[in-house]
Amino acid sequence: MTWELFIFLFLAASALISALLVVRAREIIHGVVALATCFIAVACMYIMLNAEFVAIVQILVYVGAIVVVILFGIMLTKREIMESGD
């Protein structure tokens, strides 16, 4: 097993697990953190494919816009409803 394959498997596993956490998280903000992790793992995969520009734009646009997702998450959801739902 070469190192490249090992790093790729690590990145793929973290992207998949964090993508799963996005939909499974109880707290909406935890889901958003997992979403950012997923985007960064995908950006690292672009770097492995020698597509640095796409990777940087992925971080600049998607991870930078995570803040807006958090804002919507805080302002448009009620925590009491989510806590009583479990």
Binding site: E52, I56, L60, V63, G64, V67, I70
Partner: peptide
């Protein structure tokens, strides 16, 4: 590396996420 300036500003753009996370948590 050819896209160093873009990378520096991409790293700059991550910080508000952590600040908002700190404020909320």
């Amino acid at each position: 590396v050819t896209a160093g300036v873009l990378f520096a500003f991409a790293a700059f753009a991550i910080a508000p996420f952590s600040i908002l996370l700190a404020g909320w948590s």
